[in-house]
Amino acid sequence: MIKFEHVGLRYGIGPEVLSDINLTLEPGAFRFLSGASGAGKTSLMSLLYLGRKPTRGLMTIFGKNVGQQSRKQLSLMRQNIGVVFQDYRLLNHMSAFDNVALPLRIQGQSEVEIKKNVEELLDWVDLGEYKNALPSTLSGGQQQRISIARAVITRPRLLLADEPTGNLDDNIGFRLMTLFDQLHKMGTTVIIASHNVALMDKFDHDRLILDKGKLSVHQPTSWIAEKMSGIFH
């Protein structure tokens, strides 16, 4: 479903920020993405949510070669990708309800369906009573939950989240991770970029580790073993 073959990315004439990325993810896979700051996590995420085109290599998403898709086809592919941005990227002139409803409206769903689904999801993320509030009047954690609700409202085939639990307390953070896990069990491919090792340890999923633009895959146990060996050395 998602396949990267020797994918590289550079900005302008600068050095490659991602080099020779090879990755295959089957539908319904769940991966954590880790790496030091500046390792290229955001760049890899931007390739995955089709915000950039690779400068080299072959990128296949939903079984389609991204480089060969028309603008319209790329738009339709993006409609199947949910993204939780680290800085939330909410539309400040819109209410919480309208922000969450936006992807559904872009897809052209009926207002009746939109109202039902959005209100249900807002209740689920404990923001039912704030549906008419503007993002600027909400706390960072509340904005983050709206951002997550907006990303999952369409039940995307691919869900990408950049530090989705950064501003949330452990309880709600765990609840949202459970939501992601449920979506993954329903067939959604989930990739979560996170530094929160404690949170990652609670879920038994492979980890993609980015180091200086190179990607490697680790089993949860091997990751812990590596960490442990690092500590003992």
């Binding site: 089709l50 738009s75 592919m77 409609q79 993204v83 990227r89 539309l91 936006l102 992807p103 872009i106």
Partner: peptide, 16 residues
């Protein structure tokens, strides 16, 4: 600009 990019990333087509 940022709002436009966001709509674009959500899959809004140019015509939309």
């Amino acid at each position: 600009k940022e709002d436009l990019e966001l709509l674009h990333l959500m899959g809004a087509q140019d015509n939309y």
